[in-house]
Amino acid sequence: MKRLKKDKRAELVQQLIIHLVLIGLIFGMFFLATVGRTNSRIVKQQVLEKQIALLIDAAEPGISIDVPTVNRNGVIGNVVLSGGKVFVTVNGLSSTNGYPYFSKYDVDVIFREGEGDSAIDDKFVIGVVG
């Protein structure tokens, strides 16, 4: 009888531990997702996209805008201009929404490798054509 009671108590403790671990895992996952969302990568991406969009908006034909891949806002993986929007990949975080620009001129972007082996000299060149 005593042994049966002990077994039941042990089973309850075991269940409780499993529950606590599962709850901890779920909250941990969501906490990480929240941190990922609010960390600086998204803010840096927003800064870069909006800076580039404003530069394009204000640019006259013939102007080219150099965006170094190693930027103070992080390492830029890609700059895409599509559907009137700027999409910038920063520190591996690709952009889903982008930011719209309203330039009346044709705008294109090319990747230009630097002379050295280092990626520091690599850049994206945004050209504004009349």
Partner: peptide, 11 residues
């Protein structure tokens, strides 16, 4: 938290 703590830069 995503709605209330989303940092928005207004240009």
């Amino acid at each position: 938290s995503a709605v209330f703590y989303d940092y928005y830069i207004d240009v």
